[in-house]
Write a protein that binds this DNA or RNA. Sequence first.
DNA 1: GCAAAAGTGTTGCTAATACACCCATGC
DNA 2: GCATGGGTGTATTAGCAACACTTTTGC
Lengths: 234, 234
Amino acid sequence: MTQPDLAVSTVIFALRGTSSENMVLSLPLVRRIRSPFEGTWALPGGPLGDEEDLAQAAGRNLRDTTGLEPRYLEQLYAFGQPDRSPDNRVVSIVYWALVGGDEFAATFDDENVQWFDADDLPTLAFDHALIVEYALWRLRNKLEYSRLAHGFLEPTFTLAQLRKVYEAVLKRRLDPGNFRRTVEASGQVVPTGERLAGTNHRPPQLYRFNTAQGLIDPDPLTIRTALTHPGVAS
Amino acid sequence: MTQPDLAVSTVIFALRGTSSENMVLSLPLVRRIRSPFEGTWALPGGPLGDEEDLAQAAGRNLRDTTGLEPRYLEQLYAFGQPDRSPDNRVVSIVYWALVGGDEFAATFDDENVQWFDADDLPTLAFDHALIVEYALWRLRNKLEYSRLAHGFLEPTFTLAQLRKVYEAVLKRRLDPGNFRRTVEASGQVVPTGERLAGTNHRPPQLYRFNTAQGLIDPDPLTIRTALTHPGVAS
DNA sequence: GCAAAAGTGTTGCTAATACACCCATGC
DNA sequence: GCATGGGTGTATTAGCAACACTTTTGC
């Protein structure tokens, strides 16, 4: 019984065009420079370091390929079909992450790293198309029920900006009034007291996210706090 | 950079005392017969076979330790903290499963395998206490929003039996009338047309689960069908 | 008839939606 | 003033919980 190789990969999401009109959900891919699938686009990933845990490896992937810091990071799924790689057997533990759109300038200038529109991806290596599809579903699902655009925005933002994030990710319009009430009622966001000036309309209130929920949240640990402090969950 | 060992473990749930009054949620543990944690109870698990995928390995664990067939099987989480095993580094991909309570007689007679009340577990090896806690949370959570006691019941059952499963797992009483309506409206259950005789009250309708949803459902594949046939998800 | 659980009806609460309308700013 | 989005009020609706009530069996 041969031990399969273990790899950690990351699906990284960002919104290109933050605070402008048309934001598109995008993700970075890396071009494979060796067999198998040489020349094909694939998810960033690699082996697990000796001293790092799985989430740290995913965060390292993210920094190495994009130069950005993850604002949200969560385990997605472990993929282990025997035939998912033509050569060695590889079990991939996949994370998904959100990074801020405004930091796009910081992206490395690397011809083998490129951002793609999430709805217009090239052919991907291995089973990475399935993985991305699943990650997209999870992102949209999580955004809907957890009412929180965790990582796409700056520390301070208006509710209209937050709403536009939701609209871009979910690809449908949301009622501004109802959105405001829902988000405010959720308590996940608090007004800073300051307003954004310089618009040609009534200056909007600035908000920030409420509890600095740890950047990296390994679900099981999240659960422990939810059990300890009922009401925080849901 | 050393490759960590890869293991697959399974949290197996069953209800002891099905169709009687007090059902308790239970799970089987195996006593470790080697270092580390020799003599301590732990989750069943082991290495991944060359030809099997992750879910198959979890199912094999389940059959080998309990002699039962899984009725529901789902990936839980991958645990990979560097220090979770004192010797070699081990990354564990953990599944959780449901098995039928009436099949309890079939359990192997093995002094190193024993069923425990889920709310009264012994000290567990490694980080298995955390894993079980998380699996319990997932089970209860999933039961609440997916309104389906997937694997605890026989192919045909009354709504009262189904309700008692929910009550035993969620540890709270459910209104019989409302439960009936919710479950019937969900469409996940259909009446067989037959009734259960021999009770000292009005004979209840027998039901069975609706679509034979695959026994093993690797989430990403579930998503694919949900995307193809909208409305199946929810 | 009586006990017990199956099964139905009704009411009230809450949360989400649709949509009308007022407010405060730049020009 | 006027345009533009920020922000608030309100009516409608759907779903769920609470609970009263009727039905059908065994004894």
